[in-house]
Structure formats: structure tokens, C-alpha cells
């Protein structure tokens, strides 16, 4: 796609995102029914779970891009890997901040070391570590290789983390999607929020990708300019 096509797509995605976000807020706050026991507090759920799923999607994208980089050795995949890891950390930060805010009035504690909370926190730390690794390797080729290796290690680690602490007492509500326990009247709102977060992810991923691509191009130009002068 040429540059104008990309800009067009960006505009389209931006407009879609804007409309979608308003719709998502409407669905989460007004359309969805009031939950019986938790009341309006349950409305945190729609954005909390949507960003959780989006964060996991981002880490899966990071894993795929890391593998592809090792196979193809194309910088394009490294940009995707970096962008998705950063976004995954951002979305998981939303999960980790909204979680305690929901937990305080419902469980009467901010934090509890239940498997789901602990694994989310560890997952967040794994990808912060990934970003740290990237930060401290100076050579671009080496950075891409090493971080691809770390990205693969982190993604393989995630399920093992989950299984190794799963026997701890879990008071987190079971994922409604696995158990099918989400009331049908809440489903439209949830699916809308989920879809809007996926659009948000794609929009931000593209933006972060082009930022990284131009950053590397500018770095290359700088080296050229240094040679000239």
C-alpha cells in the first residue's frame, strides 16, 4: 500500500474507533442491565476484561512476530514485535489498575494473591522485562535477534506460570466466557467493548509500527549525515 493509502486507512480506523468508543461507552453504561449483586460496579467489567483479552492478543502477536523475525530476518517483524509488546504492557496496565479499583468495594481488599491476579502481574513483568532488554541492547540487529529470543521465552513461560500457581485459592470470578455464565442480556455490551478494543489495538499498533519504522530510518540517515560532515 502506498503512503496515501496508509493515511486513508489511518483516518478510516480513527473515525471507526471514535464512533466505536462512544457506542462502547453507551453499551457499557446505559444499554447493559444493572447487575443484581454488585450493582453499577459491574460495569467496570466490560472495559477491564476487554483490555485483558486485547493484552493477551498483543502478546500472541509479539510471539508470532518474534518467531517470524528469527525465520525471515526482516526488520518489519521486529517493529511489529516491539509495538505489540508495548501495547500489551499498556493494556495489561489498564487491567491491573482497574482490577484493584473493582476489588476494593467487592472483596474489601485492593489486592489478593490469587492465581489470576498473580499471573497477570507476572505476565506484565515479563513484558516489561522484554522492553528493558530492548532498551539496553544498542546494536539494532543484535537487539532484534535477542529480543525475539526473549519474546519467545516469555510467551512460552506464561502458561507455565499459570499452571504453577493455579492451585492457590482463587476468588476471582471465573471467566464468564469459559463457563458461559455471562448473562445473555450483558453479551451485546461485552462483545461491543471487546470489538472496539480490538480496533483500538490495531489502530495503536499501526501508529506505533510507523513510529518505530521512521525512527530507525532517521537513525540511518543520521549515520549517513555524520559520514558526510
Amino acid at each position: 500500500m502506498d503512503q496515501r493509502g496508509q493515511a486513508r486507512l489511518d483516518e478510516f480506523l480513527g473515525a471507526l474507533l471514535f464512533a466505536g468508543m462512544i457506542l462502547a461507552l453507551y453499551m457499557a453504561f446505559l444499554q447493559a442491565p444493572r447487575e443484581k449483586t454488585m450493582g453499577d460496579l459491574q460495569r467496570i467489567f466490560y472495559f477491564h476484561v476487554s483490555s485483558g483479552i486485547t493484552g493477551l492478543t498483543a502478546f500472541a502477536v509479539n510471539f508470532a512476530a518474534s518467531v517470524m523475525y528469527l525465520v525471515r530476518r526482516n526488520r518489519w517483524w521486529d517493529h511489529v514485535a516491539l509495538s505489540s509488546a508495548e501495547l500489551g504492557v499498556m493494556f495489561l496496565s489498564i487491567v491491573l489498575v482497574t482490577g484493584p479499583i473493582w476489588a476494593k468495594p467487592v472483596w474489601f481488599v485492593w489486592w489478593t494473591w490469587s492465581p489470576r491476579l498473580t499471573s497477570s502481574l507476572v505476565l506484565w513483568m515479563l513484558y516489561v522485562a522484554y522492553l528493558l532488554v530492548r532498551n539496553y541492547v544498542l546494536d539494532p540487529d543484535r537487539r532484534a535477534l535477542v529480543s525475539a529470543v526473549f519474546g519467545i521465552v516469555a510467551f512460552v513461560d506464561a502458561p507455565i506460570v499459570w499452571f504453577s500457581i493455579r492451585w492457590w485459592r482463587d476468588i476471582h470470578p471465573a471467566p464468564m466466557l469459559e463457563t458461559g455464565g455471562l448473562s445473555p442480556s450483558m453479551r451485546p455490551a461485552f462483545y461491543t467493548c471487546w470489538a472496539v478494543f480490538q480496533i483500538l489495538f490495531i489502530y495503536l499498533l499501526r501508529r506505533r509500527f510507523f513510529l518505530e519504522a521512521s525512527r530507525q530510518e532517521v537513525e540511518w540517515l543520521q549515520r549517513r549525515a555524520d559520514m558526510v560532515s
Partner: peptide
């Protein structure tokens, strides 16, 4: 008021974004 927590959660989401 639990509404304060709901408000705080969404404010936090917007701030992070």
C-alpha cells in the same frame, strides 16, 4: 459510594490511554 469506584476505574482507563 460504589459509583465513585466505577468513576475512578474509567478515569484511570482514560488517563492510561
Amino acid at each position: 459510594n460504589p459509583m465513585n469506584y466505577l468513576f475512578a476505574a474509567y478515569v484511570a482507563i482514560w488517563i492510561i490511554l
